[in-house]
Structures are given as structure tokens and as C-alpha cells.
Amino acid sequence: MKNKCLIIITLSIVLFYACHSKVEKNEHNETQISTIDSEGKVNAHFTFLDIWKKLPLKQLPLDETTNFDNVANDRFLTEEEKVVLKLDKIFTDYSQYKDAYSIRSAYKLEFSKRFYSIVINAFKGEHELEIILINYNDSEDIIDYKVIAYDEIAESISQKTATIEKNFVTIIDKTDLEETVIEISKFHVNASGEFNIVKDVFTSTIRPNEAILLNKTYKDTIQFNSYNDDGDYRLLFGKKDFQEVILIHNFDWEQEKKYNFSENETLQITWKMDSIWIAGDGETLDFKETIIDAKRIKK
């Protein structure tokens, strides 16, 4: 009888540990499954906001000059964190070359309460480093991103730095070959979190064969057609060498006789290419011919 009881107790202990081990194995396997479910949704143990809250906030304006000599060596992202941040939308070859990537979360910025801004450092192999500014919407999707700094130590011929302001990012590209070449690009960060390049050379139907400079004053002759004051900007329509021209105006033409022109009158206009904000489109910065003054040319 004692032997039977001993056998039963022994079998119970064996079964208990076997079941317990099986449960532990199953639980371990569950943590290793993909963080993307069958519907393509992130199945992580933390959220985008968990990552966001842990990042240090840097105040604007600031100079972004991260390179191999000064880059920090902490806060490297796990595979799960990379999925939550949807970095496969930026590094399209990541699944193929993920062993070559090391990515760390650097800091966060606050351009607006309407979207989130995160800066990451991406090591591409041992010789390339990209600093990337990423804007996310409330749905945690990437709105837009921009490589704002870059360093490479294979040949040490290319480097990128940036100055970040409240609504603008200015990027300086430096290339050292036989001579040093520096290119400067400026981007406006609109209210929707998109990056729009700020140009300084333009084209215009008023002078179609000439490069037009921002805020430089020009004088030309046009034929007046009409005013249209019904939109977000008040417009003057005319023709120059049979081509339609449209300029933004601020004339009180109904009250001031000198600006109350008749159709086909010949005008001498003073104008410039000026900045405007496109309403209802994330307050996007744009540029448009703007008339400063106009007067009739008497025949």
C-alpha cells in the first residue's frame, strides 16, 4: 500500500512539473510572436505614448550637429519599439538588412500640440549615421520625416547638420572632394506636420524667362483685366504678352479712383514674389506674385 501511495505521489509531482514547464514555455513563446497581427495592427506590450513620454524634450531653437564623435550610446530601440514607431515606413530595406541597423531614440520636440515629433539616430552599418526627424499624428502614423543630419567615416567626405526653429528646419549639406561644396535647404513645418521646402528662386508668367528672387522688387507693364476679392486672397487679373498674370493685391479700388481700373487699361506695376499662407491646408507656406503699386499709362 505504501508503495502504491509513493508511486501516486511521485507521478503527481512529475505531472505537476511537466504541466508547469509547458505553461512557462507557452508564455515564453507568446512574447516572441510578431508584433503585427493578422489585420496588420501593432500588438505590442506598450504604446507609442510610452516611448514618447520617456524621451527628453529639447527646446527650440537648437542646432543639430550629432556625429560619430558626439553621438550618445544609450536608448537603443528594441525590435518591438521599432514596430510601434513604424520605422519600416522609413527604412524600406530594414527587413532585409536589419542586422546592419542600430537605432536609438534621441529626443522629442514640440512644434505643435497637433502632432508628435521624435528624433532618432540610425546607424547604418559601422560607417554611416543618420539623424532623422519624424512627425506622427494622433493615430500614431508617420505624417512626414526628414534626414536632418548625417555623418560618415568611411571616406569622411559628406556631412549634414541642421538648425531647428519653431516652424522651420534649415539643413546644411557639406561635401569635401577637391573643393568644399555647401548646399543649404530650408523647410517649413506646417500645422499638419508636413515639411515643405522654402524656395528662394522662382518663375513667373510676368517674366517667364527670368529667375525671380524672393522679395526683390520688379517693374513691368501689363494689361488690366479684373479684380476678384472673394477668396482668401484678393487677386488682380491681367495679361502680359498674351499670357494671364495673377497678383495678390491690397488696393481699396472701390474707394480709391487711382486703383479703379477699366478692362484692357495698360498699367505699370511694381511687384515682388512674397510669402503667403495657404488657409485650410495645414497653414502651408507658399509664394505668390504680390503687387505693391500700379498706375495707368496714358496713351
Rank of each mutant, 00 (worst) to 15 (best):
L213E: 13
T163V: 01
F115V: 05
D69K: 07
Q159C: 01
A279C: 07
F91D: 05
E179F: 03
F16E: 04
N43E: 07
S21I: 02
I222S: 13
S112Q: 09
C19M: 09
I148T: 02
T266K: 15
D151P: 01
K82H: 05
V23W: 09
N137T: 01
Q96I: 10
Y136M: 03
I222N: 14
I51P: 03
L57G: 07
V42T: 08
T284C: 07
Y17W: 10
A122H: 04
E256N: 14
T170G: 01
L77H: 04
W253S: 13
E140F: 04
S21R: 07
D74P: 03
R114Q: 12
T66L: 11
Y101H: 08
D173T: 00
L60R: 11
A106Y: 09
S275E: 15
V42I: 13
D200C: 04
V245L: 13
C5Q: 14
I171L: 02
W271K: 09
K82D: 02
I36F: 05
I292N: 06
G193F: 05
F242V: 13
N137D: 10
I7Y: 12
I36A: 03
E194H: 09
M1L: 14
K174G: 01
I118E: 04
K258Q: 15
L15F: 11
V42L: 06
L129T: 03
F187W: 05
L247S: 13
F261A: 07
D220Q: 14
F68V: 02
T10F: 13
I184A: 03
M1Y: 14
D293V: 04
K98S: 11
E244W: 14
D293N: 15
N73Y: 10
N196W: 07
D93S: 11
D138K: 10
E79G: 12
N135I: 01
K146Y: 00
V84W: 04
E128M: 07
Y145L: 00
K82Y: 06
Q59L: 10
W253Y: 15
G125V: 06
K53W: 08
S262M: 14
K108E: 08
E126Q: 10
H127R: 03
V198I: 09
F111Y: 12
K41N: 10
I248R: 13
V71H: 05
V169N: 02
H45I: 00
K54I: 04
E254N: 14
N70T: 07
P208D: 11
K166C: 01
T66P: 06
